[in-house]
């Protein structure tokens, strides 16, 4: 009976092998086409559209990172905006201090965010559950206050991005847009690549049962810290790009809880613990914003109601409404035994 099973699965593997190859090509062509259109966007859209897209991509990246933390690591951080601030401030101060082109200063955001994430990990990962969540918020508050009182970071006034002067308006807008596109697409690509590898397997097991993951040899703490650092790097870079267009960072706006709130909303709406969720979530979020933001405080009440309704009616988010009917895996992170 056992050898029979083997030959059956072997035959199945052959047919799916061909199918996988074909869909792989179709997917690649669609993806490349989409990427081409997105890259060409500055040539056929105005500045306001580009700025909207910058927001969309940076919010997407931050939500993707938050979703990764919460959905895969069970790490609920309400202080992710600390990395928005750190990333943005790192880029601004490196760029202005060394008179460096802002785009060339972006790697500083990645490096500084990673450094701070590692430092923060030491106290934070001693905290459990709700204490961790509160801890991250306190951390962000402390960072904001520290920046507010640091003269070399411009204190309350912040830092203007003086190195942007001399760059034409078109090029600046297009350049920031491309940076945002790179951050959005890049973070998805990085996370997709990680999820397909060893780290992804470890993360998925930790997500489902920490006790069983640990018993199976997965180093749960190390997996979580790696995740925390990756999320910080993505959030920090997205934060830096988000502030390239405003040309100014300031403690109040940059270290604002609004960043984390939006990320949580997008992740919850789209589906926590999936790669697809934030993509849907961010689109819905911006549609809602474009439609309702003129209603002032009602807009936030509507957002809140939608978030609560989602959690009650479809806890898996919008993406679960699709997978509930049909198991699909567009990013191909499932491992199939053939």
């Amino acid at each position: 009976m056992k050898s029979e099973n083997l030959s059956v699965t072997a035959a199945a593997a052959n047919t799916t092998g061909v199918a996988v190859n074909k869909t792989y090509w179709i997917k690649s062509i669609i993806l490349l086409g989409l990427l081409g259109v997105l890259i060409a966007l500055p040539w056929f859209t105005g500045y306001s559209t580009q700025r909207l897209m910058v927001e969309l991509f940076t919010f997407y990246a931050i939500a993707l990172a938050w979703n990764l933390l919460a959905g895969y690591g069970g790490i609920v951080s309400v202080g992710q905006h600390v990395f928005v601030g750190i990333g943005a401030y790192a880029m601004f101060s490196v760029s202005t201090t060394f008179s460096l082109n802002p785009w060339l200063a972006l790697p500083a955001s990645i490096i500084v965010s990673i450094l701070f994430a590692l430092i923060f990990a030491v106290p934070m990962f001693r905290l459990r559950g709700a204490y961790f969540a509160v801890g991250t918020w306190v951390l962000a508050e402390m960072a904001r206050i520290a920046v507010l009182n640091s003269d070399w970071l411009g204190a309350g006034g912040g830092i203007p991005l003086t190195t942007m002067t001399g760059i034409s308006r078109w090029l600046r807008n297009a350049g920031v847009y491309w940076a945002a596109l790179a951050v959005g697409a890049g973070s998805l690509a990085v996370i997709w690549w990680l999820m397909r590898g060893r780290l992804g397997l470890a993360l998925l097991s930790v997500r489902d049962s920490e006790a069983a993951a640990s018993a199976s040899g997965v180093n749960v703490l190390r997996t979580k810290v790696i995740l925390w650092v990756i999320a910080a790097a993505i959030t920090g870079t997205a934060g830096a790009v988000a502030y390239m267009n405003t040309l100014q960072v300031s403690p109040g706006a940059t270290f604002s809880l609004n960043w984390t709130a939006a990320a949580i909303f997008i992740a919850v709406l789209g589906g926590i613990g999936t790669l697809e969720g934030p993509l849907i979530g961010v689109i819905v979020y911006f549609l809602l914003r474009e439609c309702f933001s003129s209603y002032g405080s009602w807009y936030f009440i509507i957002l809140g109601c939608i978030a609560i309704l989602t959690m009650v009616l479809a806890p898996g988010g919008a993406w679960s409404l699709i997978t509930r009917r049909k198991q699909i895996d567009p990013f191909g992170i499932r491992r199939i035994l053939s």
Binding site: L201, A202, L204, S205, R207, D208, R334
Partner: peptide
């Protein structure tokens, strides 16, 4: 079990 994973992925961990 890791409920979000396949049976095979469970043992692969």
């Amino acid at each position: 079990p890791f409920l979000g994973l396949s049976v095979y992925e469970n043992t692969l961990v």
